[in-house]
């Protein structure tokens, strides 16, 4: 992938605040027209990365290109092509939503007539009310509208659904899909996977300023841990245990007595569903359950290594 075709490219992007290093040289390639999700625990460096893209803060080292330009030199004309929603949204309180958005429109890319109203309709926001009287969720809608209204080539959204109710979240996801269909690129962050899982094509897991996993949602799902349970007759238990243990990637096998003369064996498997099914197929199964892969658990696994690594660094 060449730099001009990528919406965002970073190489060894590093940000230090005094002795504290917030980003340890990350490499990112976000192709145009994709929805790219970044997840990580609090303080992993998500907001720092996004602020670097907008030239609100400056990198300590490394390279950074946004829509083919360096944010430092691309200046205001580059930022007109980007829509940004800060993670901690603070808005001027005394003005009405409509006036505030009109102000942002003046210092933003061209906003087509009627866009603000139609976005406000979709999200269910009353533009005539003063911003200070709006709830957190409604303020977040103002933030979303100012990010989307000029139909920017790149949307940088820091925890975009924070404070939104589930219905509005659905509408927001629809807005993301439409943006993607129009060829816009979306870079969003979250500290929960489910949000990214529903909307993103690609995923980066960040912890302590490092990318620990770069993957697609599909690939992550394939490698994700699945909980499985087989119920067999008492007599088959030893043979079934042996067969299960031979499946690659299988976890601890737990055994529980069921009502009657059967026992259930529970364990976890990773991607080897086929091997698992074939291994248990030769028994007389009373029941078989393969749960949906739990991405949250997979991701928490990455967060977990984070904590131990952080402990080690201290």
């Amino acid at each position: 992938m060449t730099e001009s075709s990528a919406a965002v490219t970073t190489r060894g992007l590093t940000k230090r605040y005094g002795s504290h290093t917030a980003l340890h040289g990350i490499d990112l390639d976000i192709p145009r027209g994709r929805v790219f999700g970044m997840i990580g625990p609090n303080g992993a460096g998500k907001t720092t990365t996004m602020r670097l893209l907008l030239d609100i803060i400056r990198p300590s080292a490394g390279e950074l290109h946004v829509l083919g330009e360096n944010p430092r030199t691309g200046g205001s004309s580059l930022r007109r092509r980007v829509g940004y929603l800060p993670g901690e949204l603070h808005l001027q309180a005394r003005v009405r939503g409509r006036d505030l958005l009109a102000h942002y429109a003046e210092i933003s890319g061209t906003v087509r007539r009627g866009t603000v109203e139609s976005l406000a309709d979709r999200l269910g926001l009353d533009l005539g009310r003063p911003v200070r009287s709006l709830s957190k969720g409604n303020k977040q809608k103002v933030g979303l509208i100012q990010a989307f209204m000029h139909e920017p080539e790149l949307l940088v959204l820091d925890e975009p659904t924070s404070g939104l109710d589930p219905l509005v979240q659905q509408e927001f996801h629809a807005m993301l899909r439409e943006a993607k269909a129009k060829g816009q690129t979306v870079f969003l962050s979250s500290h929960v996977l489910s949000e990214v899982q529903q909307t993103a094509d690609d995923i980066a897991i960040l912890r302590s300023g490092r990318i620990v996993k770069l993957s697609t949602v599909g690939a992550l799902r394939e490698t994700a841990v699945r909980h499985v349970r087989v119920v067999v007759a008492d007599a088959d238990v030893p043979a079934a245990r042996t067969a299960l243990a031979a499946v690659p990637g299988v976890g601890e096998i737990a055994e529980a007595g069921d009502a009657g003369a059967t026992r259930s064996l529970q364990t976890t498997i990773n991607s080897h569903v086929d091997a698992f099914v074939k291994a248990v197929a030769r028994f007389d199964l009373v029941d078989l359950t393969i749960e949906e892969p739990d991405l949250e658990e997979t991701v928490l696994g990455f967060y977990g290594t984070d904590e131990t690594a952080t402990e080690g660094e201290r």
């Binding site: 602020r51 030239d55 609100i56 007109r80 940004y84 603070h90 942002y104 933003s108």
Partner: peptide, 10 residues
């Protein structure tokens, strides 16, 4: 916190 959003514009 308002300056951040203003400066993120053009």
């Amino acid at each position: 916190g308002q300056l951040e959003l203003t400066l993120a514009h053009g």
